[in-house]
Design a protein around this nucleic acid. Structure first.
Lengths: 240, 240
DNA sequence: CAGTGGTCTAGACCACTTA
DNA sequence: AAGTGGTCTAGACCACTGA
């Protein structure tokens, strides 16, 4: 019985059925689901298959299971959501493009050195990019990566790589943590000019600090987005 | 053989082993993992158990499997990250508090009516809150929820509820999608005054639009954060 | 064609919870 | 003690890939 044409796995069907019951209100947060044994007999399936269906719901956060007790509709969690940073989703948009302004190997000034915990004048790679929509500049991206490997720096790929990935490539370090901070800042004269707007206008600042295994900073990225032209969207994670 | 004391499931061990090989560089993105059959004989386990271990890695995004081809170490994806919105994490912070400015049932003006797809003058619930850090205002939260149930509006809970959850409570609708937009905007005179700053200063605007099952808007929330005092942090999702 | 992962079965023993 | 979910087995057929 395991297959049928226009194939939908049984466990998937089971998960959809339960979802429907939640959406329709037949099952509410806190309610207990049928036991695995009950689902087996209801659907005429084996226990592993029933569990596979439940696992889907558990992974989505819609259901929680407790050994010895049962499976229950979870309380919805709304505060967490997924979002995509501009550095990698930008080139997927219509009318959007990325312009590489420059790649240099420079001595770190005091600010960069302090953030990356380097001595002043240590060598860092600086990459500057401009994001454009309909040929108008909307965001400026400046990245600093500590320099200790001779890697080919300029590639086409560089236009599209997410920052932590880029850091991993250049430093050769694998285990990485990415810390991101959002804030609203006024544009200074210099930035305003590059973004084709005026000083003091609000900008969305997205700062990324990438850490290697021993919590040592490996890279620093600041994206400045013209507040009048750029908005960042996020996707809901949860179901209800 | 399925249990031992200080119990660690075999499938978990298997996943950890593979992770180690990725972190140590023995396996690199793009490399093929041992086939399921190989893992079975290597570990002396059945195929379902091996698959359960691989599933862990697939769920984490570290491994991708392709029918007929094999399982491979995935390219790390860094662009997606989790973040928490201020409306629910605020009260967890040190020195932070929430002040309820008011709850009213008002007729929707043309803006609100348009966003929520209501007729002008339809009744909506408006909730205004002020977020404070060290007794200084840092963010202003205005929420509009369509009114069609008599629910107790003012509760202690309201200070801490995430917006979509609140909407669900008041409208009685279960299936919900939350669409969030971030942008940087200049403060107008009125808002600047409420946040104790001056007109034109940048603010981080977090706009949430909550939809019910048939894509009908149920609630609208705008959080305006003083750019000089508020920053939003996000957590890395991915592994490498 | 042989090899891969995807689905599924019909059992089993276990740890834990509740009564 | 009975019921629950967690782990595990030793098979099976399938769809898909690549030589």
């Amino acid at each position: 019985m395991k297959t049928s044409e226009s194939f939908i796995p049984i466990y998937f069907k089971l998960a959809e059925d339960i979802k429907q019951q939640v959406f329709s209100g037949k099952l509410k947060p806190g309610d207990m689901l049928p036991t695995e044994a009950q689902l087996c007999s209801q659907y005429g399936i084996s226990r592993m298959t029933a569990r596979q269906g439940l696992k889907l719901l558990v992974d989505e956060g819609m259901v929680e299971s407790f050994r010895g007790k049962g499976s229950f509709v979870a309380q919805p969690k709304f505060n967490q959501l997924m979002l995509e940073l501009p550095d990698s989703h930008f080139h997927l948009q219509e009318n959007a493009s990325v312009q590489l302004l420059g790649v240099d190997i420079i001595p770190a000034d005091s600010t960069v050195a302090s953030v990356l915990k380097l001595k002043t004048n240590s060598k860092v790679i600086r990459i500057k990019k401009l994001y454009l929509t309909e040929n108008e500049p909307v965001a400026l991206d400046t990245r600093y990566i500590i320099y200790h490997r001779r890697q080919p720096v300029v590639e086409n790929e560089i236009n599209y790589a997410a920052f932590p990935k880029e850091v991993a490539r250049h430093t050769g370090v694998a285990l990485i943590r990415n810390q991101v901070t959002f804030s609203a800042v006024p544009l200074d004269k210099n930035l305003a000019q590059q973004l084709g707007t005026t000083e003091g206008k609000p900008a969305l600042q997205i700062e990324q600090l990438v850490f290697g295994g021993q919590e040592q900073p490996l890279g620093w990225s600041i994206i400045i987005c013209n507040g009048e032209k750029y908005r960042m969207n996020a996707i809901t994670k949860t179901y209800i």
